[in-house]
Every structure is written in C-alpha cells, then in structure tokens.
Design a protein around this nucleic acid. Structure first.
Length: 518
RNA sequence: CGCGGGGUGGAGCAGCUGGUAGCUCGCCAGGCUCAUAACCUGGAGGUCACAGGUUCGAAUCCUGUCCCCGCAACCA
C-alpha cells in the first residue's frame, strides 16, 4: 500500500449551473480522499473545470458575452457548491488558467509531436448544421440526420490527429496485465469489460485539434498558429498541470511516488482508460494506477433533464437537510459504479430512519442519562462490545479500502442499530440502585458511539465532530484537520486518552417539515 | 444482430468471487418509557422475469426468450 495518494475528479464543464450529478462525483472522491488521510496516507486531492470548447463558445455567443466572461460567471457556482459540500480539495484547477495549466499542456503537445504520435491530416466529415457537429455514417437514416431530418454537408478541415491505433495492444496489456511493468486498473471490475470491448473493435486515431476558424476558445497548438487544441490534450492534462509536471515548478513526487486515482463518470471512462495513458506513455510519464468509475443519477426514477423540470439542485437539498444528510444519502444509497436515484421521498425516509431516529436519538439516549449522573465517562476494559467493534472496524476498513463506500457507511448504520437494541436490553435507566454498573454501562455505550463517529468521519465530517464534542472526546477539536489520523490506538477499545467527562447533549438532526405533495 | 445497465415480498433497493433470501418504508401483534411521538421484539408477505443447462447444491455461473431503462438533443 502506497503511503502517498493523488486523487482527482473529472473537471466539470461550466456552461450551465452544477446539479446533483456533479455533487455525487465530488462527494465520492472526497470520501475516498478523506479515508486515505484518516488511515494515515499523505493525500493530494484536486478538482477543477474544463472551460474550453465549442459549446462554451456557442453559449457565450448566444448570451452575447465573451467565453471568458461566461466561465468567470459560472465557475464560481461550482466552487461555492463544493465549498458548501465540504469537498476537501487541495487545488481547484481551471483549464483557462494560462499560468498554471497552459505551460504543461503546451509542453505535453510538443513531447507527443516529438514522439511522432501527432500528424496533420485532412479530415473529411459529414457536418450537420442542426447538430452543429460532425456526425458519423452510422447515425444517418436514409442519408439524413435522424434528429434534424436534413442531409449533412461534406466538410473538409485540417486536424492534428493522435495516432492512438498504434497502442491497441499496449493498452490491453496495461488494463489487463501490464505495459512496461505499469498497471492501470478499473474499479469496479465490471466496468472494465466495457472498455475492453472497445479494444476488441480496434482503436481509431483521434482528432486532437480544430482550425482556429471553428474553435478559437482554447489552447493554441504550438508552432501552428491556425490550430487550437481539442479537448483531449487540454482537459485530461489538468491532472498533471495541477502538480506542475513538465514545468520548472513541478512536484513530481505526487505523480511518480504516489498512487494515482482518477474518479470519473461512466461516460468518459473510455477516454481516461485509453487516450490518457497512451498520451502519458509517449510523453515519457508513467500511467495512473486506478480509475474509479461512478454511475449516473436519475431524479425520481427518471432521467434528469431541464425539459422534464426534474433537475435537482444540490443547494435546495443542503438548505433543507444540511450538507451531511446529502453526503450521507449519496454515500449510503448508491453503490459505487451503479446508477442511482435521487428521490425527495426516499431522502426524507432515510433522514428520519437512519439519521434522526437511529443515530441522533441513540446519542441522545446515552448522553441524557449520563448527564443525570454527572457526565462521568468510565467503563471496563473488558466488554463484549469491544470484541464486536474490532470486527466492525475490520469490515469497515476492508470496504473502504475497496472503495465500497455504501458498504462502509452501512457498517456504521448497522452498528447503531445494534447499539439501540443492546441499549434496550441493558436498560440502564432501570439500574437505579447500582450506580457503578449504571455508569460503566453508559460509558461503554459512549465508547461505542465514539467509534461510530470515527467511522462517519469520511462521510459526514461535521456530524462526526458534533458527536465527538457531545461525547466530550478530547480530540474532537482536531479531528477535522487534514493531519488527523485514526490510529490503531484510537480504534481500540478505550483508546481515547484523557477522556473522562461527557459534553452537553443536543439534537443532532432536527425534524424537517415535509411539504405537502405538489 | 450498435454498446451498456437492469428485472428480488405492496413500494424502493442490497446480495450476484454459488451453500438455509437481507435492508428501508408500509402493515399486524406485543414490549419499553432513558430518548428527537423516538427505541426494541415477534409476525404476515417472495417458486429471486421465464425456459433450459452446469453442480451434491444457483438469486448468484452458462445458453436462449420476453420486458424495462440509459448512451446519439442542455446534462457527470
């Protein structure tokens, strides 16, 4: 296990406001990054925006502003959302950043050219003015664009092409075995088959640039004033421009001596699995280690779309239920890789059942009784719960290491459920005569809750801290720092040193009014 | 034969490196009363889409069939 971790997400395309899908990816990546830190790894975590391209250019034209003005207006929407979501990134990289991003991109292009992977060709394609893009022969129905019912025109243009077809065999080796001793793995495993199927068909060379006349908003191709880079060399490169590779301010330790994890959506898996490692390899840079692929979100069982009017804005959810409830929902409900659904009804159910009635109430039951007895935290070293917790920690860590986030969070919800049952059996409120037994019983439950809070730290950092504060755990104030580590000591029974007094109980998750059905 | 995902008790889902079918909500009956009208226990309810096959044994692997949904239109 590497002790240095570099985690990235896909960079978002800011030609519209962010929605729930963006939140899903960042939260998944953040949970991963936080888990790495908590287990003691050194972590660098980067997100950002992909700001170039034809769509941005067109949207800007429509709104009669410059592309620069458009992105400068929209990018803060993303940055503010991620701040609210508690995304613990170290850098937010913008591809329009000419100081940080462009030098690496330009240098990478030069290297690929020197490696003879780039070649200028005349591209002849069928252009549909309705789609405003080139379409393939396969998409034609009776020689017409099926969407706009009109015949496309044949258009020629000069493009730089990247000779990816040469790497078909190498990439298969990389993904299934190794290529020059380097390995690149897709998680979850079943997503790998999709990519391998593409390899079976043989890879085609990919277009890497556009004439300036059709795309002006982007990074200029070096030594070719008429061409602007297309998305691949520009956007993918953010992962290494963020750490300055190929420049004089490079921090190569975050690439060469780290485990590199790219967190992305299933739609762009093929580019990250194929083009990206190929580019790196030919530029003399090692390939990444793993691709963590998540699915898409539907809204109330249907595809999220503006025309259906069911696009869920993360801010609405946060305002109503709080950030941690959203982080919990997305972590708990959606197995990594699978598609998931956002439903207000389900959200409310989960909030009430798991967070309010189970977790919040459990904490309150213990602390209120404890307070009546003066809040002294004292418990026996030997306790049946200690053994059980050890097993829970193992299951939890195993799930988290395997990026099975939903399984990890379920370890905690199960634990809380078991505690509620055990609390009923122990019935400390009935132990009126036996003061010592009452204290040690309540102490043991407090200790179990301390562990639960530690396990919740990657998913719901603020809540984890609130619980710890209410319990009066001495390390509560420092547990949100990036340097905080869940040591073997901390995860052992009675591992919180100097803890002997509980804090003030308060409501963790308040009831939320459910609006009448519309 | 485009690619892919899925069909599991009333609803929504997990399980799918094979061995008595789990979870949340809802329903019924008890218990408790420390707690956020919260908590706990028990129960009713499923031939795990269908048909074959492999196996001592399949929701879980293989083959075929039937449905549903994504990807090509803002959108991860």
């Amino acid at each position: 296990m590497s002790s240095r971790q570099y985690v990235t997400t896909a960079i978002d395309y800011p030609n519209a406001a962010p929605h729930m899908g963006h939140a899903l990816e960042k939260i998944l990546a953040d949970v991963t990054a936080r888990w790495f830190r908590l287990r003691g790894d050194q972590v660098r975590f980067q997100i950002g925006t992909d700001e170039h391209g034809i769509k941005i250019q067109q949207t800007a034209e429509r709104e009669k502003i410059t592309p620069k003005q458009l992105v400068d207006r929209n990018v803060p929407l993303f940055q503010e959302l991620y701040k609210r979501l508690n995304i613990s990134c170290d850098l937010f990289m913008r591809t329009s950043d000419q100081q940080l991003h462009w030098p690496t991109v330009t240098e990478l292009w030069k290297k690929l050219k020197k490696a003879e992977m780039l070649e200028k060709r005349t591209y002849v394609g069928l252009y549909c003015s309705g789609c405003e893009r080139f379409i393939t022969k396969k998409e034609l129905v009776d020689g017409m664009c099926d969407i706009h019912k009109r015949a496309p025109e044949e258009v020629k243009e000069e493009n730089w092409f990247y000779k990816m077809s040469k790497d078909t065999a190498n990439l298969r080796d990389l993904l299934t075995g190794s290529w020059d001793k380097e390995q690149y793995r897709i998680v979850p495993k079943y997503r790998e088959n999709e990519t391998l199927a593409l390899l079976d068909q043989g890879l085609e060379d990919v277009s890497f640039s556009r004439p300036k006349s059709s795309l002006s908003w982007g990074v200029p191709v070096p030594d070719d004033a008429d061409q602007v880079m297309y998305v691949w060399c520009d956007a993918l490169t953010n992962y290494i421009s963020g750490i300055g590779l190929l420049t004089d301010h490079a921090q190569p330790e975050w690439w060469n001596d780290a485990q590199v994890t790219h967190v992305i959506g299933k739609d762009i898996a093929r580019f990250h699995a194929l083009i990206w490692p190929s580019m790196l390899k030919h530029a003399g840079i090692r390939t990444p280690d793993q691709l963590l692929i998540h699915g898409f979100l539907t809204s109330e069982g249907e595809k999220m779309s503006k025309s259906l009017g069911n696009v869920v804005v993360p801010d609405d959810v946060i305002s109503k239920y709080g950030v941690d409830a959203l982080r919990f929902y997305l972590s708990h409900e959606i197995p990594v890789g699978n598609d998931g659904d956002f439903s207000w009804k389900r959200f409310g159910e989960l909030y009430d059942a798991k967070l309010r009635n189970q977790l919040g109430n459990m904490l309150n039951r213990v602390l209120v009784l404890l307070k009546k007895d003066g809040g002294v935290v004292k418990f026996d070293r030997a306790n049946p719960q200690a053994k059980a917790l050890e097993a829970e920690w193992q299951t939890y860590a195993k799930a988290m290491d395997a990026h099975e986030v939903h399984a990890g969070v379920q370890v905690v919800t199960n634990l809380i459920s078991v505690l509620n049952g055990a609390f009923n059996d122990a019935a400390p409120w009935k132990l009126k005569e036996d003061h010592d037994l009452r204290i040690s019983t309540l102490g043991a439950f407090s200790e179990s809750l301390r562990h639960a809070a530690l396990m919740l730290l990657p998913f719901m950092p603020d809540t984890a801290q609130k619980i710890s504060r209410q319990l009066g755990v001495p390390y509560a104030e420092s547990m949100l720092e990036k340097s905080f580590v869940i040591t073997p000591q901390l995860r052992s029974w009675g591992g919180a040193e100097g803890w002997n007094q509980s804090g003030e109980p308060s409501i963790l998750f308040a009831p939320v009014e459910v609006e009448a059905a519309k």
